[in-house]
Structure formats: structure tokens, C-alpha cells
């Protein structure tokens, strides 16, 4: 018996919400990501400068805690996003995280002179590094969650899906923050 495999007709894409802002490209460029990662590494190096009892632990600390937390929680976000049947394409979800990581890293690169100044002139270099990392994490997670919600709205989510994605984004941000804190604690200990 012949079985004809006919392509499943694609469901018409729901209309995007006109009030949502234009989405950035799905994934950041390699240059943006590389600059971001270099920025996190440089911030850690700036925190490790100075002879004030700081160990070399801090050197990879910024990169380890930020990128590590995203790598550990990103797949979980992707799985739950698909499990809930939300509208945005998986590459948009990954893109939101990658954009936040790249922009957070570029912010970290800009903070290097600031961190260096406090590492050299005070004994509070590690404290400042931790404080700056919390600031980068907070603003980066805010950008990532906004990106996630924007991607969903742009894909034409139903009101229930909008509610789901907001809950998912908030839960994921909290999880990432806690994982980042645990990684940071282990690095500094």
C-alpha cells in the first residue's frame, strides 16, 4: 500500500502585535559575542589586579559566572519554552540570551577602567567586582527577559501565551540569578 506523504500545511502565522518594537537580528554577530566574552574576561582581570590579597580566582570569575549561568540555564529555558507550546522560534529564544550576553559583556568591557581604578587605589577590588557583576547580571537579565517577551509578542502570542512567557521569563531570570550567585560563590571561595 502506498502511503502518500503530503506536507502538512503550515498554520497561518498569527499577526504580530503592532505595539511591539522591532526585533534585533535573530543572533548577534560573532564580533559582538567575542567582544562581550573578552569584556567579561577583561573585567575579571581588572578585578585581579593589585596586591591587596586578591587571589587569581577573580581572573576568570566574571566570565565563569555570567556565561556559566547562561549555559546552565539556557537549555532549560528552551525546553520549557517548547513544552509550553509558545510561538517564538527557538533561534529567537537563543538570540535573546546571546544578545543579552554580548551586550552585558560590552558593558563589562566599558567597566574595566572603573574596576581597575578601584582595584589599584583601594583594598575593595573583589567587593567592587562582585558589585559590578551583580549590576551586569541585573541589567543583562532584564534585557534578556524583555527580549524573550518581545519575541513572543512579535510571533503573535495569544493572551494566555503572553502570560505564560512572562511567567517563564521571570522564573528563568530568578533561576539564572541563583545559579550565577552559586557559581560566583564557588569562584570567590
Amino acid at each position: 500500500m502506498d502511503i502518500a506523504l503530503e506536507p502538512i500545511p503550515a498554520a497561518p502565522a498569527p499577526a504580530a502585535d503592532a505595539s511591539t518594537p522591532d526585533l534585533p537580528p535573530s543572533l548577534p554577530s560573532l564580533r559582538e559575542v567575542t567582544t562581550g566574552l573578552a569584556g567579561l574576561l577583561a573585567l575579571g582581570a581588572a578585578g585581579a589586579v593589585g596586591a591587596h590579597g586578591l587571589t587569581l580566582h577573580a581572573f576568570p570569575g566574571a566570565l565563569w559566572t555570567s556565561a556559566g549561568a547562561l549555559v546552565l540555564t539556557g537549555p532549560a529555558l528552551l525546553v520549557v519554552h517548547q513544552f509550553l507550546g509558545l510561538q517564538a522560534a527557538p533561534d529567537r529564544v537563543i538570540g535573546s540570551l546571546a544578545h543579552a550576553l554580548a551586550k552585558g559583556g560590552i558593558f563589562a568591557l566599558g567597566l574595566v577602567p572603573f574596576q581597575l581604578f578601584f582595584s589599584v587605589t583601594t583594598t575593595r577590588g573583589p567587593g567592587f567586582l562582585a558589585l559590578l557583576l551583580c549590576g551586569i547580571a541585573g541589567s543583562g537579565l532584564l534585557a534578556a527577559t524583555r527580549g524573550l517577551v518581545d519575541a513572543e509578542l512579535h510571533a503573535g502570542a495569544t493572551p494566555m501565551q503572553r502570560l505564560h512567557v512572562r511567567g517563564l521569563a521571570a522564573g528563568w531570570a530568578l533561576l539564572t540569578l541563583l545559579v550565577g550567585l552559586r557559581l560566583g560563590w564557588e569562584v570567590m571561595a
Binding site: 558593558f107 566599558g110 567597566l111 541589567s139
Partner: peptide, 16 residues
């Protein structure tokens, strides 16, 4: 100003 300006651009960009 010199210490903070490099970070400001990154911060504002992160905040859209």
C-alpha cells in the same frame, strides 16, 4: 568622567 564614560555606552545599549 574618563573612568565612567566607557561603561555608560554599554549600559545604555543594554537598556535599549
Amino acid at each position: 568622567m574618563m573612568l565612567v564614560l566607557p561603561a555608560l555606552r554599554g549600559l545604555w545599549s543594554l537598556c535599549e
